[in-house]
Design a protein around this nucleic acid. Structure first.
Lengths: 337, 337
DNA sequence: CTGAAAGCGCTAACAA
DNA sequence: TTGTTAGCGCTTTCAG
């Protein structure tokens, strides 16, 4: 039992089974023709020994890596896990494996993550957002593998993009709000510098208001903490400052939900006295006492299409250079009159 | 410009800088002594070319991989991202990189994920839970690297474990509930087969009730869907079936929150007529109209300690074979009288 | 401080 | 159907 724990190699399986390394390799990869007898012997030996192939060596030799890097801002945002799971689902039957990395909305961190991922020579990269540092951009452009930018389509694309126009999503919401007759509109959102999609939504929103001669009557920003709790606080604060607001547009559903709960507790008439809307159409809204108006960002379709493109099995046979703009869907709920 | 896109190698940098591959390698890894002049040349050439080292080759040659596999049931559970981010934070200054994999609470999928991860020869593995298939167990035992099981400590441990006793968490909650004088207690949870921690909590909960001569008066299970919405439905259902319940114990905070919202809408007196409690102490509870009683599962401390152990810098100099049981903390909130 | 040689564990390509 | 040979791109080791 004086056996030093050394990782097993093909050679060990080869010796244990009396079959050449090459043939063992073929069996283990289901490649080429191997006689059932040999096959059996090999599999038995491999299982008995508990052999786990070394993909590092395999990848180096074959110049193939079955990894797809997926780079997103944050795991705790509730929005991204949904994208990830739809990516995972599609990749599952392609032999590709997703590897996740988070940037914390920080460009420097994104650089590191991209660099780190590329150094493993993945088969493709899926990156959230269109905004990257110059260094990141160069790395992505020269990656030599499919790069799909997701979530957003408002801006210059490196290779392929799948997402929605957040500017348009903002416009659409503004139009719905105006059409319902609201005019004293406040905005509540994160202060997050790096959240370009939230910024674009707000820009689109304000542009549409401007076209109707309406200006945002108030703004309120937050950072950190429980979004639901922040939604309450901000709502209380903005209404204290500007009591005659008749609509509150939240940059995400969670703070919107907090605001909704607060307003209901205050006995405020929704959507009569005041209307509310969020963004994302998260699951959580289902369980609220009232259905918050929101906009669906097509998260799972985005993940699905991105994965299909990277896996090379996209229905349109896309090779690159395409921009796939999905249509955000308004969910009126009960908080717009 | 007829340049075929071929990934750059050390050799390219070597040629561009007129320095041997070996020295280039040393510069790029900050290893050994290199004259500042040479160093400068190399760095310049590497940056100009946009060289990204090939970690596959590096790992094969050095027999070292800076990856730590982290295996959890699900990304969408809200509980796991928190563990992940504390793991990431600790690993950040160790040169180690976390790689995440999800099992969907399915043992077969866990096997695949473990196998896949081990085939990349990571420096360590962090796995949620103590329950594994025989195959998974064998792989983990023979991994030859540190394996830390997290979240739970009730059961046989492979190498090292960091977590809480869910049985104890269940007992503690039962004791608090009984001490407050509640006796007609209902349980509401997921039907999820693979969620062993939820099961153990319930077992501990029932055991403590039994010792006081109390039996669960009703149970209600759900699967899938928006947890908040399910919490409402289940609460309505269980109270319709067994109207005289005076306490509802939820297997997680989200369904608990749904139940809380529903009860409040019904004008039910909480915690007088009926008490409520969840589990996990998630952020979201901060924003609810009333503070749900819950139990903190020490998620971020678990992640932190697990990462420290894998990184070999744990304060107790743990090598393996240890079980670190943290103490779950009761948060009474306002829903236990 | 710098370089040359050997080889990590596997697979592509070819030979038998 | 099976085996042999020659690397994949890097780092270790040892020599200068």
């Amino acid at each position: 039992m004086a056996d030093i724990r050394r990782p097993l190699t093909l050679r060990d399986v080869s010796e244990a089974s009396g079959v050449s390394e090459m043939t063992v390799s073929r069996v283990l990869r289901n490649r080429g023709d191997v006689s059932p007898a040999t096959r059996e012997k090999v599999l038995e030996a491999a299982k008995a020994l508990g052999y786990v192939p070394n993909k590092i060596a395999g990848a180096l030799a074959s110049q193939r890596v079955n990894l797809v890097g997926v780079i997103i801002p944050s795991l705790s945002n509730m929005v991204f896990p949904e994208v990830l799971s739809s990516i995972s689902k599609v990749l599952e039957d392609t032999g590709l494996q997703p590897v996740f990395g988070a940037t914390g909305y920080r460009p420097e961190k994104e650089e590191t993550v991209i660099y780190e991922m590329l150094s493993w020579r993945p088969s493709g990269l899926i990156v959230a957002g269109l905004e990257h540092s110059a260094t990141s951009r160069v790395m992505l452009e020269n990656a030599g593998v499919p790069v799909v930018e997701i979530m957003d389509v408002d801006g210059p694309v490196i290779d392929t993009a799948v997402g929605i126009s957040h500017a348009r999503a903002g416009r659409m919401m503004a139009e719905a709000i105006l059409a319902a007759g609201y005019r004293r509109i406040g905005f509540l959102g994160t202060r997050m510098e790096g959240d370009h999609r939230a910024r674009k939504r707000l820009e689109g929103f304000e542009a549409a208001l401007a076209e109707a001669g309406v200006k945002l009557a108030a703004r309120e920003y937050y950072e950190g903490g429980s979004a639901l709790a922040k939604g309450r606080e901000m709502t209380a604060a903005i209404l204290a400052r500007v009591p005659d607001l008749d609509f509150l547009y939240y940059s995400n559903d969670l703070i919107g939900a907090g605001g909704l709960l607060w307003c209901m507790e205050q006995g405020i008439d929704i959507p009569g006295r005041i209307g509310l809307a969020g963004f994302n159409n998260v699951d959580l809204l289902d369980g609220l006492p009232m259905r918050l108006a929101t906009m669906d960002a097509c998260r799972s379709e985005i993940g699905q299409q991105a994965a299909e493109i990277v896996a090379g099995k996209h229905r349109d046979g896309i090779i690159g250079g395409e921009i796939i703009a999905l249509t955000p869907k308004l969910a009126r709920g009960d908080t717009i009159r």
